[in-house]
Design a binder for these strands. Structure first.
Lengths: 120, 120
DNA sequence: GACATAACTTACATTTTTGATAGTACCTTA
DNA sequence: TAAGGTACTATCAAAAATGTAAGTTATGTC
């Protein structure tokens, strides 16, 4: 996360692929280890940092911060800071963020089916 | 790829998440850097190793092999070896593999829309 | 003045993924 | 006998992602 060297072959490969395949472009945006869980929760409405931290098992504050920053950079979520004490920050999906819903729903269904088939 | 330490925190986190979120489970299967491109091509029908190598820009034989092996392990593709010379190996999506189509299509559409919005 | 709280940062370590390069086995054709 | 095609493997190195643990900041409360 965050430190992609723009001189690396890996970066170059991703760039080329993203240009040619929009599905890879999408995957690179929502492909972080915790991105999908975060988005899933946010589909139900905005949440605070601490709430996300609570409902997502095992994520560290560091990783949560990193993923939220990336999602914000990619315009998937917005970040709203309240001038209160103690601090309060709310995260919410953007319009295009909410449009991830059908993808997430389908992935969930597919995942369930795949699990089921593999358990037979 | 391939060498996940089952004692690592990362492994544990993935396991727990996959159990709770089928969409994360799905993402872990199709989330490799090249998996989606491979699947996209295979949606059009079976292909040989060398054909995939040709149409996918910049992928190395090593990475192609690794990804194909993983997809095979996960029952997304089948591998058929012909007893010919020169060697001929064909890869084809399984039934559940073909069922990725709607996901891929939607990710592609979403990706395009996202790109468009971000360019404005 | 010590302590708590929410939302972070920072520095460092480990794990995981990807890349570069060279080599292998097998058979066929020149 | 040598060269060439196909589908790989093996080794080593680099880059990228994730995890651990300890701060930090700003302000209210006891």
């Amino acid at each position: 996360m965050s430190k992609i060297k723009i001189t690396s072959t890996n970066f170059e490969n991703k760039k080329v692929l993203e240009e040619e395949c929009s599905e890879v472009y999408a995957a690179n945006i929502i492909g972080g280890q915790w991105s999908l869980v975060i988005c899933s929760w946010l589909l139900q409405g905005k949440m605070r940092f601490s709430e996300l931290n609570k409902v997502i098992p095992n994520i560290t504050e560091r990783m949560l911060t990193l993923q939220l920053r990336k999602l914000e950079q990619d315009n998937i979520i917005t970040r709203k800071v309240y001038a209160e004490f103690p601090p309060k920050v709310e995260y919410e999906l953007t319009e295009i963020g909410y449009e991830l819903r059908p993808i997430i729903v389908q992935m969930e269904q597919w995942g369930k089916r795949h699990k089921y088939l593999n358990s037979k």
